[in-house]
Design a protein around this nucleic acid. Structure first.
Length: 441
RNA sequence: GGGGGGUUUCCCGAGCGGUCAAAGGGGACGGACUGUAAAUCCGUUGGCAACGCCUUCGCAGGUUCGAAUCCUGCACCCCCCA
């Protein structure tokens, strides 16, 4: 007995458009199907925007279907005009190569590649597109695309109607490539369903049309809504840019924090759309959020589920530990390793360890060298006002001298002003001149 | 070309010879409160070896015991009459 994937997607609000709302549920429940979603390698890491389709693939697989993650090594060379207001810059071949590798790596944990006939597949359309000659493509594929139908697509229309930006023939052709991908995946793997974000609808239907023309076969499509916040802005945007899935670009802590801070109004939808929690639990969380919003059970559950999914149990543990430290009590008896992990996003400065020998380093100086105060006066003020903390412990004596006893780990002292501004001081031998070793910011 | 007004500390904006590091507001930063929210309240807001000293009020000079405040020149901005 298969899980009713369509009904599940429906109540989660994950179906924006589908080619056939009455036929698809039955088709999906009556057998194992092969489906795909495409990801263009525009960066070497996925970001939150990719999460939705990637999770869709995962949901389908768990419901007994076979997912294909298609990486657009070929289409990425062109640039998808959908949802873009301007012509895109082309990526170099090398950059593209690196991005493809990065994405493949990142997709691994989401899908099961060792599940017998349901094993997920990774495909790269460069593999079949590169062999295509221009003439061959025009004859076999291009011939099947009526220009008037192409011009009628929203993605194209939107761009042509703007008078400040046009569209090149290259981007115009993007649709053909993606359409052909669908047909190719059908030929090769019997893939009959393509899913994607709502901005992909035009490309998906182009593929369906092409399937009908070239192979006389019925293909299907489905899109999920774009993930936006109640205020209309995109989910997953931070002041620093996108929220990446790669730990190098967005630390597990920052990732976790983003979800912890989701607005109450958005939390319910995020739970539905981004987690695999069952309906009963989500309903319960909705109720809890209503009754005691301050407890923020929903946000915690959301952050937990997503961080575990993206960064694994270790990543989640690190994020939770970092959260405790950032908002919690004294920092003590930790190792350098732990501190560096927790404070990965925090600027640090180095000082020779001799500075901790008697009489020690004045707290005032420590704050200025760490960059937490612009001047000694500012440092004084912070201390006097009770806004200076060493290892999360308030120190309000102006004459405080820091010594080896204040180290939180082997070589690090954690300084903080105010509620959240942190900086690390590392005491190491080989440092020659403290002024040149500042980093971060 | 003629006449008038302006240029103040991060921003707006008072000050019009000493009591001015310069009112008030905004912002920012600390603290309390709180849900790691918003609002609110309190405090701080040029620098330094700090009951004192130094630098700051468009720029450069001058008058004066003393100038952000008065005079001269320069630069930029605004308004009115040509």
């Amino acid at each position: 007995m298969m899980k009713d994937i369509y009904a599940d997607l429906l109540w989660r609000g994950l179906i924006h458009q589908s080619t056939d709302a009455t036929f698809l549920p039955e088709w999906l429940n009556s057998g194992s199907r092969t489906l795909y979603a495409g990801f263009d390698p525009t960066a070497e890491s996925l970001h939150v925007g990719h999460l939705l389709p990637l999770l869709m693939l995962r949901r389908f697989q768990r419901a007994g279907h076979r997912p294909i993650a298609l990486i657009g090594g070929a289409t990425g060379m062109i640039g998808d005009p959908s949802g873009k207001s301007q012509e895109r810059n082309l990526l170099s071949a090398e950059a593209l190569q690196a991005n493809v590798a990065g994405l493949q790596q990142q997709m691994q944990p989401f899908l099961d590649f060792d599940a017998g006939p349901l094993s997920a597949l990774l495909a790269n359309n460069a593999d079949w597109m590169q062999g295509f000659s221009y003439l061959g493509f025009l004859r076999d594929v291009g011939k099947n695309f009526p220009i008037n139908a192409m011009l009628a697509k929203d993605s194209v229309k939107a761009r042509l109607e703007r008078n400040d930006s046009g569209m090149s023939y290259t981007e115009f052709s993007y649709m053909l490539l993606q359409a052909y991908d669908f047909v190719h995946l059908y030929d090769r793997f019997g893939c009959q369903l393509q899913i994607g974000g709502s901005d992909q609808w035009g490309n998906i239907t182009a593929g369906i049309d092409l399937g009908r023309r070239m192979r006389s076969v019925q293909l299907y499509g489905m899109t999920c809504p774009l993930l936006t916040k109640t205020d209309g802005t995109k989910m997953g945007k931070t002041e620093k840019g996108a929220l990446w899935l790669s730990a190098d670009r967005t630390s597990p802590y920052a990732f976790y924090q983003y979800w912890i801070n989701v607005a109450d109004e958005d939390a319910g939808r995020c739970l539905r759309v981004l987690t695999e929690l069952e309906q009963a639990e989500i309903d319960a969380l909705d109720r809890l959020r209503d009754e005691q919003p301050q407890a923020r059970h929903s946000q915690k559950r959301l952050a937990e589920a997503l961080t575990r999914l993206v960064h694994g149990d270790d990543g989640l543990a690190a994020a939770v530990r970092a959260t405790e430290v950032f908002f919690g009590a004294e920092i003590d008896r930790l190792t350098d390793q732990q501190l560096v992990e927790i404070f990965a996003d925090v600027p640090s400065s180095q000082l020779p360890c001799g500075r901790l020998e008697t009489p020690g380093l004045s707290l005032i100086q420590a704050l200025t060298t760490a960059g937490l105060a612009k001047s000694n006066s500012e440092a004084r003020r912070a201390i006097q006002q009770g806004g200076a903390y060493v290892n999360n412990r308030r120190r309000d004596d102006l004459d405080t001298m820091l010594t080896a006893a204040d180290l939180a780990s082997e070589t690090v002292i954690v300084l903080r002003t105010g509620k959240k501004r942190y900086a690390l001081l590392r005491f190491q031998d080989e440092t020659k001149d403290e002024r040149f070793s500042k980093k971060g910011g």
